[in-house]
C-alpha cells in the first residue's frame, strides 16, 4: 500500500515540477527571446498614426469598389479574428454549392466578366481559418479593372501595384504565389 502511495507522491510532485519548468519558465523564456522580434511576437500589427488598422497576417473585410476584396470568410460573421473557422461544408453540401454559385455571379458582375469566364477558386471559396490574408495573383488580376475604374487609375498602374505586392514561393519552393490584400490596399491608398 505504501508503495502505491509513493507512486501518487511521485505523480503529484512531478506534475508540479513539470508545471513550473514547462508551463512557467519555458513560455517565459520564449517570450523573452521572442523580444528579439517584437513586431512579429506582438502580431505583425499594421499601425497608422495612433491607430492599429489590423495585422499583416490576418485578413480583414473590404467591400468598397476601390479596394481589392479578400476571400469569403466563415469566421464569425466574416473575418472575426477572435473566432477563426472554416465553413465545414462537405463537397456535396447544397449550402456550399448555393453559396458558391451566388458568389460566382457577384464576382462576375462586379468585375465585368462574361458568364463563361471561370472564376478563380480562391475568390469564391471560404478559407480554412476564415482569416486568410491572401488572394491568388489571378484573383487580384481579375479585380484590377474594377479597382482602376473606381480610383480613376489606369489598369496598368493597378496591375503594377499588384505585381510589386505579389509574394513568390518562399525560398523559391515553398507555398504558393500570393497577394496580401491589406498590404496591397494600403499601397493603393499611398499609406505604405
Amino acid at each position: 500500500m505504501n508503495e502505491l502511495l509513493s507512486e501518487f507522491r511521485a505523480s503529484i510532485v512531478s506534475t508540479v515540477l513539470i508545471a513550473i519548468v514547462f508551463c512557467g519558465a519555458y513560455p517565459l523564456a520564449v517570450y523573452g527571446i521572442g523580444r528579439a522580434f517584437p513586431a512579429k511576437a506582438d502580431g505583425s500589427l499594421v499601425i497608422l498614426g495612433d491607430n492599429v488598422v489590423g495585422s499583416a497576417l490576418i485578413g480583414q473585410p473590404f467591400s468598397g469598389a476601390g479596394y481589392f476584396h479578400p476571400r469569403p470568410s466563415a469566421a464569425g460573421r466574416g473575418y472575426d479574428a477572435a473566432n477563426s473557422s472554416g465553413s465545414y461544408y462537405g463537397p456535396l453540401s447544397k449550402k456550399l454549392i448555393d453559396d458558391v454559385t451566388a458568389r460566382v455571379a457577384d464576382y462576375r458582375r462586379e468585375n465585368g466578366l462574361d458568364d463563361g469566364t471561370p472564376v478563380p477558386a480562391d475568390a469564391v471559396t471560404s478559407s480554412a481559418s476564415g482569416l486568410d490574408p491572401h488572394i491568388s495573383p489571378e484573383n487580384a488580376h481579375r479585380q484590377a479593372m474594377r479597382v482602376a475604374t473606381a480610383r480613376g487609375l489606369t489598369p496598368e498602374a493597378v496591375q503594377a501595384k499588384i505585381d510589386t505586392n505579389t509574394e513568390g514561393r518562399q525560398l523559391g519552393l515553398f507555398g504558393q504565389p500570393r497577394v496580401n490584400v491589406l498590404l496591397l490596399n494600403l499601397a493603393l491608398d499611398g499609406k505604405r
Binding site: S87, Y88, T101, A121, S126, H134
Partner: peptide, 26 residues
C-alpha cells in the same frame, strides 16, 4: 460540382484551404 458552377478547375479544391499553402501543402 463547383467547376460546373463556374469555378476555375485549377488549382483544385480550395474550399477550406489557405492560399499560402495551396492544395499540395494542405
Amino acid at each position: 460540382r463547383l467547376h460546373a458552377a463556374g469555378v476555375a478547375s485549377v488549382p483544385g479544391n480550395m474550399e477550406g484551404k489557405e492560399v499560402r499553402f495551396g492544395v499540395f501543402e494542405s
